[in-house]
Design a binder for these strands. Structure first.
Lengths: 333, 333
DNA sequence: GGTTTTTATGATAACGATAAAAGATGTTGC
DNA sequence: GCAACATCTTTTATCGTTATCATAAAAACC
């Protein structure tokens, strides 16, 4: 390993001078600069960032704790984080925690020891003590999405209450009055609760008495697939199912298909999130588009602003959603 | 920030003693140990890994350079890398390069400066000079998958020639003789070339004269979608299309569907890779299962072995594939 | 032309930890 | 009782940088 010392020796100057050339921090005479750069070029010298970090007290490291990278929307967010983070010269240390609290705690501690300058938590169900630990140990942090009990933390999200209400309104507009909602974890997070509330509120506003909330075991494809048996039982009573996320919806639609029912002819199904997959299934899925890439991008940008001392960095942001009409809803009127 | 110095002062011992307690590296008397641990507990002291790295010359950092994280199979591999890497106490620094050579070079340089102990490249089309740069600057590296011109580098892959031949054999067994192959980048990488060769070889073995290779613009959904127009033109002449990857296949199937053609009734389509999506579409896709999670896991495990000095670490591994029969092929005999 | 100011460079002390050598204390053996 | 040894602890050097301070040389001033 070649160090700054070697470069100094080989160019016949002191290490301070080499450091100056590298960082452009103080004036250096043209001849000396040229010589030093030549030696650097020749030797392929690269400054050791570990040593640099130690003395500058900057790591340019952002830790991302994420439950499951195999979720397509999470991958999309991470992509946004990585890409924008890198634009600002920050590196992304990825930590997969797979819904395990102990793993999350370990990652937090690790990121701390590694001198990470900020932490992004992606997921829904963070325990209070995890959040306390983050607040206590980390200078800067951001969350996606906000959690039910902690409104003091900084987050980027979208207004799921409004989005959900708009989707419900659309279904009503298409002539549906018997609309069920398929929730993932029920009312355990603000985000999910908002969706249910938006749905119920819009029904109320339209003087529709009927409402029904299914609660799936989880939020993945299989959980939606499993719920189809319930939905099939109720086929006479409902004409549409509003699913809390696209994966649930696709699982549901597929199981209905496998049992011989057609969407949207036999029943309409809509999703939420606009995961990449929702354009790749047939029928294409009518859904709410959450801009996951942008969420990641804005999250990391805000975090970097905070790291760099911007006191005015707005840190509770709701990004706009959009409504994506596709082919999974039947018009009844 | 509380340092080892503070802990030493507060426990009334030298910093070396504190270091020993932390690392269990040399004997420390029970009373002293207890006292030090108390102080650590009280103060919430966490050793600074940056400083530690500098002196131990270990970073426990593995860099992953990946073209596009929004590919579901890549996300799955990264998951395997992250999870197994962490098992062995290594951290994963994620670098997205989006098919940009300059970005790849920058990442390489960055990982070097950060003292990464190993690098994993995930993708297909790495330039020779990138690979040269990796070989020159990095002690240890692994690739997925192997590249056409560089057989000196270490990789984990699957035997795509055999896999492709097996799939072709299956189609022939189902009575197909007019089988087309939809390639992604043509013959630009060993991996892709092997597939084409496996397909052609099996046709030859069965004395089938007909062969036809479409070359798509890229390897994503849209590229498959676009190719449907070509396929439709040939509908009288071919009965099956073997796609180089699942995303291409799904795009193709969907466009066929959108134009009123049914798979597998009007034409059979098979894929390659067993991406998560292939179970979530209807019809479900018959395909070759590449164990992406395992590929990631084995890749990182092998890399760690090399880092830790295991001279015998086998570094050109082909993992077993498996054949997944689903519902996208029509039996003709 | 001597003093002051500017500009370029070098020497040295950090940063927060580990590791090797040296020192202090206590224990054992004969 | 003193040498020899084991056990624990401190001292000191080091990792590869940057930052501060000091110094030498050159430029500017009147």
């Amino acid at each position: 390993m070649i160090t700054i010392k070697d470069v100094a020796r080989m160019s016949g100057v002191s290490i301070s001078t080499v450091s100056r050339v590298i960082n452009d921090s103080k004036p250096v005479s043209p001849e000396v600069r040229k010589k030093v750069l030549e030696v650097i070029e020749e030797t392929g010298y690269r400054p050791n960032e570990v040593a640099r970090s130690l003395v500058t007290r900057r790591s340019y490291l952002i830790g991302v704790i994420v439950n499951d990278l195999s979720n397509s929307y999470i991958a999309e967010m991470v992509k946004g984080i990585e890409e924008v983070g890198r634009m600002y010269n920050y590196d992304i240390l990825l930590c997969g925690s797979y819904y395990d609290r102990e793993a999350q705690m370990n990652h937090l501690s690790l990121l701390n020891r590694k001198q990470a300058e900020g932490i992004i938590l992606i997921g829904y169900h963070f325990d209070d003590d995890l959040i306390e630990a983050v607040k206590k140990n980390t200078k800067h942090s951001m969350y996606f999405t906000r959690d039910i009990k902690n409104d003091t933390i900084d987050y980027i999200s979208i207004n799921s209450f409004l989005a959900s209400a708009e989707m419900t309104k659309y279904l009503i507009g298409e002539g549906h009055t018997k609309i069920a909602f398929l929730s993932d974890f029920g009312e355990s997070s603000t985000h999910e609760l908002d969706k249910i509330n938006g749905y119920k509120e819009m029904l109320k506003e339209n003087n529709i008495d009927f409402s029904k909330v299914y609660v799936a075991e989880g939020r993945r494809y299989n959980d939606g697939y499993a719920m189809a048996t319930e939905v099939i039982k109720d086929l006479g009573n409902i004409t549409a199912v509003f699913c809390a996320n696209d994966e649930l919806a696709i699982g549901l639609i597929n199981h209905l298909f496998d049992e011989g029912y057609k969407v949207p002819d036999d029943i309409s199904v809509v999703g939420y999130g606009d995961y990449k997959e929702s354009q790749h299934v047939r029928p294409t899925l009518t859904t709410i588009s959450e801009p996951f890439y942008d969420v990641g991008a804005v999250t990391v940008r805000t975090l970097i602003k905070k790291i760099e001392g911007d006191k005015n960095a707005v840190s509770k942001i709701e990004l706009p959603y959009s409504f994506m009409e596709r082919n999974s809803v039947k018009t009844l009127n």
